[in-house]
Design a protein around this nucleic acid. Structure first.
Lengths: 153, 153
DNA sequence: GCATATAGTCTGTACGACAGATTACTTTCC
DNA sequence: GGAAAGTAATCTGTCGTACAGACTATATGC
């Protein structure tokens, strides 16, 4: 039942967020990338990929597209010149703000079967469980410079 | 955050259940199929596919494999000779019982970050939300003969 | 009894994940 | 200081799998 519930909810989440993020490259995938970069600021491209469970070779061409659209930039990390710091452009931030608003509505609608109080409980439990289940993946945000932004949609 | 939490949990669930169901054809996918057939008894192959969010052309070869392994059978529905009723064999039920036990342990471990009370709350909320979000998909079980088994892992 | 719809199957294609090699840079340790 | 080993990102090739579309068989409706 757990697996089924998760699968159904994620599938529906994808379907709804698809509509909300159709002007982003790579649709839902793209939204997750942009959102993670802005809200969680993972220190490197590899950390970003790990957080989203995306293969690093895939990350490469996702970011190529985002750079091409002027939503994100790759900057050489001065401390370690092998690594790239992924930073959002102003344009990227603005676009994400729009999409985030639409996604928030879509998520509300997705959980419309639950009363608002239950919704908050579910979100808190989910986040807690996810943080506990994914070893180290969310910790990397806190380790980076701009932590404290993790309480985000 | 909702999308990320769901994605992380489902990814981890898959990884853990993978281990628990490696002797089933098609791994996790196969477990979900077998579990849905036994616990939810969807009336037709199409209903089964809809419940699991699987394309009908994919369902075809999944079931081919299961039939070949003697875990499931396709029977012509006497009422509608286009349709096939998917029924588990005794062997299928026994195998599923084993796997279910292992999956239950894996799920417990997955949610080990939460105290038992919270776990139950999370499961109940998830199930309720999923049932509300997937229009009609879970209703088919109740419409079939052997309902009342939906409280399953 | 012909038109239209549905259950399931089969065929082809195209996309996306992943493995493996490659380039660039860093760290270690003698 | 300079080989040796390790790591970040990229590039290339391959393979699986999902999905579209055509096809067969039954069903329903007029």
């Amino acid at each position: 039942m757990l697996g089924w519930s998760l699968a159904v909810l994620l599938r529906e989440w994808n379907a709804r967020v698809e509509g909300a993020s159709h002007d982003l490259p790579h649709g839902v995938r793209g939204y997750q990338v942009l959102s993670a970069v802005v809200h969680d600021a993972p220190p490197t491209q590899a950390a970003l990929a790990a957080r989203l469970g995306i293969d690093r070779t895939v990350m490469t061409y996702l970011l190529d597209k985002f750079e091409g659209c002027g939503l994100l930039e790759r900057r050489q990390d001065p401390a370690d010149r092998r690594a790239r710091r992924i930073v959002p452009t102003d344009h990227g931030r603005r676009v994400l703000a729009d999409v985030d608003a639409r996604v928030a509505r879509a998520e509300d609608e997705l959980l419309s079967a639950l009363p608002p109080g239950d919704r908050r409980v579910l979100l808190a439990l989910l986040e807690h469980a996810a943080a506990g289940a994914a070893p180290g993946v969310d910790r990397c945000a806190a380790a980076a410079g701009s932590a404290g932004l993790t309480q985000e949609a």
